[in-house]
Design a protein around this nucleic acid. Structure first.
Length: 923
RNA sequence: GCGCACGUGGCGUAAUUGGUAGCCGCGCUAGACUUAGGAUCUAGUGUCUAACGACGUGGGGGUUCGAGUCCCUUCGUGCGCACCA
């Protein structure tokens, strides 16, 4: 019987389905293991060859853990809300739900063909009301919570209200948008609307006027991680800054815990570093500078309080509330002009230009240490969103301040001995302080480090400010002006935002006739009929962002059909958290921050038992596409082959990789590809049209998407699985190519031929030779170690070596081949299952026992001999079995010679290579 | 600019973690077999050399009996943050 992948794979996929092989139940008698993939967004292009890279890696691990006796949870679902489906809906009028479920069926079909061990009974979709009711539920709970910065946890808003009733803000330690100061009487005197507005300052889910990233083309706001270099990550449209009244999540309250938690995680250092960067903790001080001749005090944040004697001006962010307060009538016009100019520039333009701009407000601040008057300026190099939106400028020791001072001819006072500030600032935190003496504080002669400490102490004692930790991490903007997302369980009662009762969930996404914003500029939900509560209060028109549904999905898999809770306490206490999470590194500052935040919040309210959602994380590399190009001669419909293109004036055009083979274009298929090209002419080289190529991200718009279906069809799923693993380390990105796939396929056929020859099943009960056993046990040892380290490429190589060896030995022994099948099961489950049953088993290979290697088999063919050296040290040397006496003596002699180097030191290890000595390790 | 990775044959990669550099696969070369294929098998394949041999892990330097691996420096690539005070 020949190896027929189609027959085998179809048959066993059906069998697994019929027998519920991958159904998982909680089982207290076995240890649990939770393996999770980042669930995909079901795009219209279908699954491409890059998706399965991570899925295969996790599938191998899940299957391996099961063979080792763990009860493995390995679920899959869909991140179903998203922009592409909505944009498609706007164009075609088709309901996003329709296209989304079509795409999901396609994904499911493709996934099934690869033979994953998912428990599909646990499938979830974020757009399913039975799922998103728990997203809405979490939002309601966040709305009803505030963050106690002393207890370091979320607490119910009722307790906050009680505190305000009793003490006002006195003794209140709460993470808030602003520092509020209220007496109990002031609080109690507020009406309902005022109280609601005030509480927004502390709620974890709150409505606030915040600077948002507004994308006009998409008609919606975006979170910071959805914007890159001033462009939207999805679509690449320009993004501008704008103040809007939006729902936000107070992620910033958890900044320190998100930072601390990283130390407990088994993630790569680079990913942790990325998150640390994103959280951006910096220790510094907040200081107040009074404005001369006014009651206003400017509050600034600095990490270089030690440079306070070098402050020669102050700078405000254009959006800062201080600007209005300190601008003098004489400067009013100039300032307004500047603000208008800044406002017209997008963030991207600001970043590209990097020109020094600014305007004087007319006011002077007073340096609290020297009493000197210093001018207050406005400039867009100061960011409104960081610190207090105002800075003290120290041009001698900050390059940005330096550039500004030089441009506007402001004084520069050097504060560090020997620092040359004639050409540029001296930013390093080292050296001895000079020019730094004033009433109450003398830093002269101190090292910078000590000066920072001394200044901090002074600030605390003198009351001119306070030591403060600042984070770069901002609150997450949670409103999206879109249709295809979770509706907020929020209504407005006389303008006061209220959340719905949990018992009323889910709040279903209403049907609308068109998916565009309304003519009056309201979000699409403004088109919904009867979009109000039974009492007639209007419902929120925005929907939640993409990360809402993906923030707690891993919890729902534990208990996917529970109508009472997101996850029952029992299920959560059993599965706890994800032991292994596999996904792309692109989620480092998005999903992986939000999920950790969400989980910590759920932990605070007692809904889950673990502080961190993902114990270990592996980032699979991206499989890039290899885009093919054709070259059209300008203003013609003639295309010139790659080698001749330099002779013409050409435009490169991307062409569908599926009509290109080995860089040769199928010209007939090209003519049929697009109506424009039906009449295309070609200038060929050697009768062929050669395409150019480039490595780019695999995406539909680049026409470089390769679907796994063709590979599965031609070579089978087992070959695809092995090949994707064989390509290189899972973490590494690489362009897709099929150059080595034949080798992997050949290996599977060779392995098959160990069991079958000419249609006959040849495995027998004979005793294996020592060599065959050695080959097997070497493999067991290697593969077991490799799987634990996700080094699958070397595992596949080890399989090849073993099979080649067994083929050479003509080994047909069941004692070798049966364990081999078990080892194969995680990698090539279909073939393993087929062979397992051929060996006479009637249960699945998934329930077999992972073999343990026998060290004795590995050393059996070598002999151990003891060599003593000077009577002081004694150690073992392993020589090959066929080593001659002469060789052994030679070895001993070599030791003696080597001993001259080691002179009195202890011998730790001796490494002997067959025949000759290499070295002696001494300690 | 700051931070984090990484750099090995024609290609993808490996190296027991400081111990024979190049495992395994692709490709290539030669041969065998054959109703000829996108099949299978055998041998060879880092560079230079007719050969002995020498050289070889981006470049330079160092530690070590011994360095792809550790340290310094330089160049190059990728990723993250980026006017964050």
């Amino acid at each position: 019987m020949e190896y027929n992948h189609r027959d085998i794979e179809n048959r066993w996929q059906q069998w697994w389905k019929d027998n519920g092989t991958y159904t998982v139940r909680e089982d207290a008698s076995r240890p649990k293991y939770y393996v999770l993939d980042m669930f995909p967004y079901p795009s219209g292009a279908g699954l491409h060859v890059g998706h399965p890279l991570g899925y295969i890696a996790s599938d191998i691990y899940a299957r391996y853990k099961r063979l080792c006796g763990f009860n493995v949870l390995h679920p899959m679902g869909y991140d179903a809300y998203g922009l592409p489906a909505e944009q498609y809906a706007i164009q075609t009028g088709q309901h996003p739900e329709t296209t989304t479920s079509q795409n999901i069926s396609r994904y499911r079909q493709q996934l099934d063909r690869i033979g994953f061990c998912y428990d599909w009974n646990r499938e979830i979709r974020t757009c399913d009301p039975e799922y998103y009711r728990w997203t809405q539920w979490a939002f309601i709970r966040m709305f009803g919570s505030w963050y106690d910065t002393e207890a370091c946890k979320a607490r119910p808003v009722d307790e906050l209200c009680k505190h305000l009733d009793d003490n006002g803000t006195e003794g209140l330690h709460a993470a808030g948008t602003k520092e509020l100061c209220l007496t109990a009487d002031q609080w109690k005197a507020m009406d309902e609307k005022q109280k609601s507005d005030t509480l927004m300052n502390w709620r974890l889910a709150y409505l606030g006027n915040t600077m948002v990233n507004w994308c006009p083309q998409l008609g919606t706001v975006l979170a910071n991680d959805e914007v890159s270099e001033g462009l939207s990550v999805r679509g690449g449209y320009p993004v501008e800054q704008k103040v809007m009244y939006q729902w936000c999540l107070r992620v910033s309250a958890y900044a320190q815990r998100l930072l601390d938690g990283l130390d407990t995680l088994d993630w790569t250092d680079s990913l942790k570093e990325t998150q640390r960067n994103w959280i951006g903790r910096s220790e510094g001080a907040e200081m107040r500078f009074p404005i001369d001749g006014s009651d206003v005090e400017l509050e600034i944040f600095t990490t270089r309080a030690d440079t306070i004697f070098g402050v020669t001006f102050m700078v405000l962010a254009p959006e800062s509330a201080y600007v209005d307060m300190v601008t003098t009538p004489a400067q009013r016009e100039a300032v307004d002009q500047y603000l208008a100019a800044v406002k017209h520039k997008t963030e991207r333009e600001r970043m590209i230009e990097k020109k020094v701009t600014g305007v004087f407000t007319g006011s002077y601040a007073v340096n609290p240490l020297t009493g000197k008057k210093i001018p207050v300026w406005v400039s867009d190099y100061v960011l409104a969103g960081y610190g207090t939106g105002a800075i003290m400028a120290v041009p001698a020791h900050d390059s940005r301040d330096y550039a500004f001072a030089r441009h506007f001819d402001l004084p520069v006072i050097p504060l560090i001995e020997g620092a040359d500030v004639s050409e540029s600032s001296f930013d390093a935190k080292e050296g001895r302080m000079i020019n730094s003496c004033g009433p109450g504080l003398d830093l002269n002669g101190m090292e910078v480090k000590d000066a920072i400490a001394a200044t901090k102490r002074y600030i605390r004692e003198s009351g001119i400010g306070r030591v403060k930790v600042n984070y770069r991490l901002r609150d997450a903007i949670f409103s999206r002006q879109r249709y295809w997302g979770e509706p907020f369980p929020v209504y407005y009662k006389d303008g006061i935002p209220c959340v719905m009762d949990e018992s009323a969930l889910p709040l279903l996404l209403p049907e609308i006739d068109e998916y565009r914003p309304t003519d009056s500029g309201e979000p699409p939900l403004g088109r919904a009929k009867a979009w109000h509560t039974p009492e007639g209060y209007p419902l929120e028109l925005c929907t939640m962002p993409g990360f809402a549904g993906s923030s707690a999905y891993y919890l729902r898999y534990m208990d996917p059909h529970n109508p009472e809770a997101l996850v029952s306490h029992e299920a959560n206490a059993y599965w706890r958290s994800v032991d292994l999470y596999v996904g792309g590194t692109e989620h480092a500052t998005g999903h992986l921050i939000y999920s950790r935040f969400w989980n910590k919040f759920l932990f605070d309210i007692g809904a889950v038992v673990e502080q961190e959602p993902f114990r270990k994380l592996i980032n699979q590399g991206m499989i890039q596409g290899r885009t093919s190009f054709v070259y059209r001669i300008k203003d013609t419909n003639t295309f010139v082959s790659y080698g001749l293109k330099d002779q013409y004036d050409v435009t490169p055009i991307r062409v569908d990789v599926n009509i290109v083979s080995n860089d040769i274009l199928d010209t007939e298929a090209f003519r049929k590809w697009r109506p424009d090209y039906a009449t295309a002419e070609f200038i060929l080289e050697d009768g062929k049209y050669v395409c150019g190529w480039a490595v780019e991200k695999m995406s539909k718009s680049m026409f470089n998407v390769v679907n796994p279906d063709m590979i599965v069809e031609r070579y089978g799923a087992d070959t695809l699985r092995l090949y994707e693993m064989f390509l290189g380390p899972v973490e590494q990105s690489k362009p897709w190519d099929t150059n080595g796939i034949d080798g992997v396929n050949r290996f599977l056929r060779k392995l098959w031929n160990l069991f079958y020859k000419g249609g006959e099943f040849l495995v027998d009960g004979s005793e294996p030779s020592a060599e065959a056993l050695k080959a097997l046990h070497t493999l067991i040892k290697k593969v077991t170690g490799d799987i634990e380290q996700f080094s699958y490429n070397t595992s596949v190589a080890a399989f090849m070596i073993c099979v080649n060896e067994l083929t050479r030995l003509k080994c047909r022994s069941r004692k070798v081949l049966e364990p081999l099948v078990v080892l194969l099961a995680p990698f090539a489950p279909h073939m393993a299952e087929e062979l397992w049953h051929a060996l006479g088993h009637d249960t699945t290979v998934c329930d077999a026992l992972w073999p343990v290697w026998d060290e004795a088999c590995l050393v059996e063919s070598t002999v151990q001999m003891a060599v003593s050296f000077n009577g002081k040290a004694r150690y073992n040397i392993t020589l090959p079995a066929d080593a001659t006496k002469e060789q052994a003596q030679e070895t001993a002699l070599a030791h003696e010679q080597a001993a001259r180097w080691i002179d009195g030191k202890t011998i730790r290890k001796v490494i002997v290579v067959p025949g000759k000595i290499v070295n002696i390790v001494v300690g």
